[in-house]
């Protein structure tokens, strides 16, 4: 009897481990339209309305917990905010100069490249507990016009892109997510490069400058940069604020500088509503 139980236990464990490994390997090797992805999308479609309901029902409890957290935090933020206001004033003046410059050369009529995009407001209904995965579920999907790789923003700036879409919901990978990369450039007239996350430090991004000997200084502002290289195009429209350089120090390596950037949006405390920029200029 006892041996039978042990055999059954071992058989169940081995079966589950094998099944999990098969799922992982199939999920990685098959294409986006493979059968396993279809099954996942179906499960996500079923779960999405339930998640939405649970998110709404639990909102008062979340608000209560966050109220305590924010009240304590707000006391210590006054001085920081005053410094931030003066920095923002400088950035506004920088941006205004850039607008004037662009108008002069007749390049683009507005500061950012989001003209022609439609803003779709979406509620966050779920989030991963692993901060390095940094995935969100939102309550709008293909039926609201969302498509894969659409940029997602909040008031402060870019927070991520749509990485998966079903009919009534979508998954957003934040810019702090392990497989995220954002092409950005330093204002004003600074170098262009790629922003990548650091696993374990969700509030910091690394800016890897692409072929430039221009020096980057602390406090510089980064915005998204678009590019076209043959059939390759950047994921984001240009000009969406991303973050501020918090540290730029020289390294021994050929890379030149290690540039750390703090995103403008507080990715740990996102608002309930985010905006997806969908469509794009025709």
């Amino acid at each position: 009897m006892y041996r039978k139980q042990v055999r059954r236990r071992r058989a169940t464990l081995v079966a589950l481990v094998v099944l999990a490994l098969v799922l992982i390997s199939t999920h990685i090797s098959e294409g986006e339209d493979g059968p396993l992805h279809s099954v996942t999308d179906t499960i996500a479609s079923v779960l999405s309305p339930i998640e939405e309901g649970a998110s709404r029902a639990l909102k008062p409890a979340r608000d209560l917990v966050n109220w305590f957290d924010e009240t304590f935090e707000a006391r210590g933020q006054n001085d920081e905010l005053q410094v931030e206001v003066s920095e923002l004033r400088e950035q506004v003046s920088l941006l205004q100069r850039e607008v004037d410059l662009r108008d002069e050369i007749g390049e683009v009529g507005s500061l950012d490249g989001t003209d022609g995009f439609e803003e779709v407001a979406a509620q966050i209904i779920g989030r991963s507990s692993a901060t390095y995965l940094a995935k969100l579920d939102i309550d709008k999907g293909a039926s609201a016009g969302l498509a894969r790789d659409d940029p997602v923003v909040v008031g402060e700036g870019l927070i991520g892109r749509v990485s998966d879409v079903t009919g009534g919901g979508a998954t957003v990978t934040l810019i702090s997510g392990a497989d995220s990369s954002v092409t950005a450039r330093v204002l004003e007239d600074g170098p262009t490069g790629s922003l990548a996350p650091i696993v374990g430090e969700p509030g910091t991004l690394l800016f890897d400058v692409i072929a430039s000997d221009k020096e980057v200084r602390g406090g510089s502002m980064l915005v998204t940069a678009s590019f076209t290289d043959g059939e390759l195009t950047g994921l984001f429209p240009q000009g969406i604020p991303v973050g501020e350089v918090t540290s730029a120090r020289a390294t021994d390596r050929a890379v030149g500088q290690r540039i750390e950037v703090e995103p403008y949006a507080d990715l740990a405390n996102l608002p309930e509503t985010v905006f997806v920029l969908t469509g794009g200029p025709s």
């Binding site: 099944l19 999990a20 799922l23 992982i24 396993l36 998640e51 995935k135 998954t171």
Partner: peptide
């Protein structure tokens, strides 16, 4: 295993990873 599958499906993750860890 079951809980991991649900989470991975809901968040568009690699199916089986969370299952393996929770299992």
């Amino acid at each position: 295993f079951g809980a991991g599958l649900l989470v991975d499906a809901a968040l568009g993750g690699i199916l089986g990873v969370t299952s393996l860890a929770l299992m």
